Amino acid sequence: MSRLVLMIENNDRVPPGIISKISRLSGKGLMEIKKAIIGHTPVLDKPIFGRLDSGAAGDMLSLLNDLESLNISHRAYELSEREAYKEGNIYFELNSTKLGNMITSREKSLEQQRVIGWLEDPE
């Protein structure tokens, strides 16, 4: 499974609503998130898709949309499950369009799997 790692550039323009949204997604406290912004460390490091719940991916997409619409400088990366984030390494960059495409592709794939499963065993 892949995960999303999000960094927010240090600035005073991050509204409390964004920090609160990150807090709900990450499980971190508000002060911990503010320290991560100031310290140039990830504010969010979370699996994009869960086996049972795909709601986190939609919440991450909403967060990226908010960051982009408010012009808040950030970097979002896709890392593998076991890959540790290290400053200076090169990772696949994510934005709201790419994440939206990932979500759509996953939904289509799951629907195809359901159809194939039904065809194999219609009961």
Rank of each mutant, 00 (worst) to 15 (best):
residue 53 D to L: 07
residue 52 L to I: 10
residue 22 I to N: 04
residue 3 R to P: 09
residue 47 P to H: 10
residue 21 K to Y: 02
residue 17 G to D: 09
residue 70 L to E: 15
residue 9 E to F: 13
residue 92 F to S: 06
residue 122 P to N: 03
residue 32 E to N: 15
residue 83 E to C: 00
residue 97 T to Q: 14
residue 45 D to E: 10
residue 61 L to W: 04
residue 59 D to N: 10
residue 90 I to Q: 13
residue 18 I to G: 10
residue 33 I to V: 11
residue 30 L to R: 11
residue 4 L to E: 11
residue 18 I to M: 08
residue 25 L to I: 03
residue 4 L to W: 07
residue 93 E to Y: 07
residue 86 K to F: 13
residue 95 N to Y: 04
residue 76 A to Y: 00
residue 10 N to D: 14
residue 18 I to T: 14
residue 65 N to F: 14
residue 84 A to L: 00
residue 2 S to M: 00
residue 59 D to V: 08
residue 8 I to T: 01
residue 111 E to K: 03
residue 44 L to K: 07
residue 29 G to Y: 04
residue 116 I to A: 06
residue 3 R to K: 11
residue 21 K to P: 04
residue 5 V to P: 09
residue 66 D to G: 03
residue 117 G to A: 08
residue 4 L to C: 15
residue 50 G to Y: 02
residue 11 N to S: 15
residue 105 S to A: 15
residue 63 L to V: 09
residue 46 K to V: 07
residue 106 R to Y: 04
residue 102 M to G: 08
residue 13 R to S: 08
residue 56 A to R: 15
residue 105 S to G: 14
residue 113 Q to T: 05
residue 82 R to A: 03
residue 52 L to N: 01
residue 117 G to P: 06
residue 35 K to C: 12
residue 71 N to E: 09
residue 108 K to T: 11
residue 116 I to Q: 07
residue 47 P to E: 00
residue 84 A to N: 05
residue 21 K to S: 02
residue 53 D to K: 06
residue 69 S to H: 06
residue 68 E to K: 12
residue 62 S to M: 15
residue 34 K to S: 12
residue 19 I to M: 06
residue 58 G to W: 04
residue 57 A to V: 02
residue 117 G to H: 05
residue 10 N to S: 11
residue 33 I to T: 05
residue 46 K to A: 04
residue 21 K to L: 11
residue 58 G to T: 12
residue 70 L to V: 04
residue 75 R to L: 06
residue 82 R to N: 05
residue 100 G to R: 09
residue 20 S to L: 14
residue 109 S to M: 03
residue 68 E to C: 10
residue 50 G to Q: 03
residue 88 G to A: 09
residue 25 L to D: 00
residue 46 K to I: 05
residue 58 G to I: 06
residue 15 P to Q: 00
residue 58 G to L: 10
residue 103 I to N: 07
residue 41 T to V: 11
residue 78 E to W: 00
residue 34 K to F: 02
residue 29 G to S: 12
residue 2 S to P: 11
residue 110 L to A: 10
residue 72 I to Q: 00
residue 122 P to F: 03
residue 44 L to S: 10
residue 88 G to K: 02
residue 56 A to N: 15
residue 41 T to W: 04
residue 70 L to Q: 13
residue 26 S to I: 07
residue 63 L to T: 08
residue 85 Y to G: 05
residue 13 R to G: 05
residue 85 Y to K: 01
residue 21 K to A: 04
residue 109 S to K: 08
residue 22 I to L: 10
residue 16 P to E: 03
residue 41 T to G: 03
residue 82 R to S: 01
residue 42 P to K: 01
residue 47 P to D: 02
residue 7 M to D: 12
residue 62 S to Y: 15
residue 11 N to M: 09
residue 21 K to N: 11
residue 67 L to F: 02
residue 81 E to F: 00
residue 48 I to W: 03
residue 123 E to S: 09
residue 41 T to N: 02
residue 70 L to S: 14
residue 49 F to I: 05
residue 64 L to C: 05
residue 117 G to S: 11
residue 20 S to F: 13
residue 85 Y to S: 03
residue 57 A to Y: 10
residue 115 V to L: 07
residue 71 N to Y: 08
residue 36 A to R: 01
residue 94 L to Q: 06
residue 123 E to G: 02
residue 26 S to P: 08
residue 50 G to P: 00
residue 28 K to A: 12
residue 91 Y to W: 06
residue 57 A to C: 06
residue 108 K to V: 09
